[in-house]
Design a protein around this nucleic acid. Sequence first.
DNA 1: ACGCGTTATCGGCATTGGCGCATAAATCCA
DNA 2: TGGATTTATGCGCCAATGCCGATAACGCGT
Lengths: 84, 84
Amino acid sequence: MSTIARTPQQIGNAIRRARKRLGLSQAELGERAGLRQSTVSIIETGNPAARIDTVLGLLAALDLEFQVAPRNDPAAPSLEDILG
Amino acid sequence: MSTIARTPQQIGNAIRRARKRLGLSQAELGERAGLRQSTVSIIETGNPAARIDTVLGLLAALDLEFQVAPRNDPAAPSLEDILG
DNA sequence: ACGCGTTATCGGCATTGGCGCATAAATCCA
DNA sequence: TGGATTTATGCGCCAATGCCGATAACGCGT
């Protein structure tokens, strides 16, 4: 299962949910990814100017990855559209 | 269909292929996304420090989107793994 | 209500993005 | 092969990241 991530906010929300699902604090996730707790906080909040490698590092630390897909993919779930 | 994008390079490659599939030049894509041709070039080359909103803008201009998915998703295609 | 863990902000600092403007280098095609 | 399009670099600039060290503000359970 995958969630759509068209905006920094949606990316932040996806990261936050995955982190909580694993029972991690921002500090713990930051340690895994080599980032500061404050940096994790800002990205989860939806910082639009975050660096791509920083985000990729967080996803990797959560055993997640990006997939590039067409926007009209009918198979794409839209949990994020509902939950914001 | 979707392609894995775990690194800036893979993201850049996905963007480049999608752009060419649409028969666009970097300048044309840049105009759609509100970016300079040189910026498009750098990102397609795999700039790890690119800004997330810049990348999202390029994807949107190509009618693509990110999806956040588990890394061990068996359904995940690995075109990128083959083509680099 | 209180304390504790968690998350959101703060000032300063070095580094870098993406811009404008411009050009070299690589590619394609007639 | 020559010319034209396309892509890759260049320098200076301003703004903003993410770092360090800390500290507010928030939430939750007892």
